[in-house]
């Protein structure tokens, strides 16, 4: 599966180092995500994959390295400058990076439509009617046309997650981050969510996805990256990384996963 490649990558990570106290969670990560590419990150818990995503979205600070989105440094004023960007600047940058969370994190006091429209109204400054129209469009695309007025409490897990996806994608971000978005779902609901993501990938969304769904990685991912102890241990096309693992650790990891999913 090939993706249309521009010269410059959308996301560029260089030498990322993140420590929590005495533990080094990310130990020098280098990564590029090209336009329209679906990059899948796999690894055991504690390997640093979720932290990687949270660094990209500037939800947590990091200790060294550089993360750029289309050339603009995200969390700090310059690579390794140590000067964190202010709240406003961060907000503007985050508007171009969408994120879908494992626990959905929908706003419980807003309907599905209002959840999706909030960012459009406040961050993009759209008038209410236009924002809600867009929200309705995206909710229809994720198959929730009849649930627009529901509060999150009146939605199943799979439906909530689809709203979460619509909320992130409606902002028309340059990059979409997906953090184990199906791990908290009942197995029978996983499919409907993954179908939505597949559709987005087909339409050319640039994605960085942390997941345990090997089937999805195999048929929808363009590249797979295996993280281990804070570093990228293996990377390549899914067929290679998943079909012909080179390291013993990856082999063991895949065996554990396959045992669970089969």
């Amino acid at each position: 599966m090939t993706a249309g490649r521009d010269a410059a990558p959308v996301l560029s990570v260089r030498g990322l180092i993140k420590r929590f106290g005495t533990t080094t969670v990310l130990d020098g990560v280098d990564l590029d995500v090209a336009r329209g590419e679906v990059l899948v990150v796999i690894g055991a818990s504690g390997s640093g994959k979720t932290t990687l995503l949270r660094c990209v979205n500037a939800l947590v600070p990091y200790d060294a390295g550089s993360i750029t989105l289309e050339g603009t440094e995200i969390g700090y004023t310059a690579p390794n400058s140590g000067v964190r960007r202010g709240d406003r600047a961060l907000a503007r940058l985050r508007a171009d990076i969408g994120m879908v969370f494992q626990m959905f994190n929908l706003f419980p006091h807003l309907t599905a439509r209002q959840n999706v429209a909030l960012g459009l109204r406040v961050t993009r400054g759209m008038p209410r009617r236009e924002a809600e129209a867009r929200a309705e469009h995206w909710l229809a695309r994720v198959g929730l046309a009849d649930k627009m007025d529901n509060l999150p409490s009146a939605l199943s897990g799979g439906q909530q997650q689809r709203v979460g996806i619509a909320r992130a994608v409606a902002m028309e971000p340059k990059l979409l981050l997906l953090d184990e978005i199906t791990s908290a779902l009942d197995p029978e609901l996983v499919g409907e969510v993954l179908d939505v993501v597949r559709g987005l990938a087909r339409d050319g969304m640039t994605m960085l996805m942390v997941t345990h769904e090997m089937g999805f990685a195999r048929d929808a991912g363009h590249r797979v990256v295996f993280m281990d102890a804070g570093r990228i241990a293996e990377e390549g096309p899914p067929r290679e990384v998943l079909g012909h693992p080179r390291s013993e650790r990856l082999r063991r990891f895949l065996r554990r996963i396959e045992l669970r999913t089969e």
Binding site: A91, R94, F101
Partner: peptide, 15 residues
């Protein structure tokens, strides 16, 4: 997670 989701759609602190 609520704050994180709010951040992720580009809202400032006051927002």
């Amino acid at each position: 997670g609520q704050m994180e989701a709010a951040k992720s759609i580009g809202l400032t602190f006051l927002e």
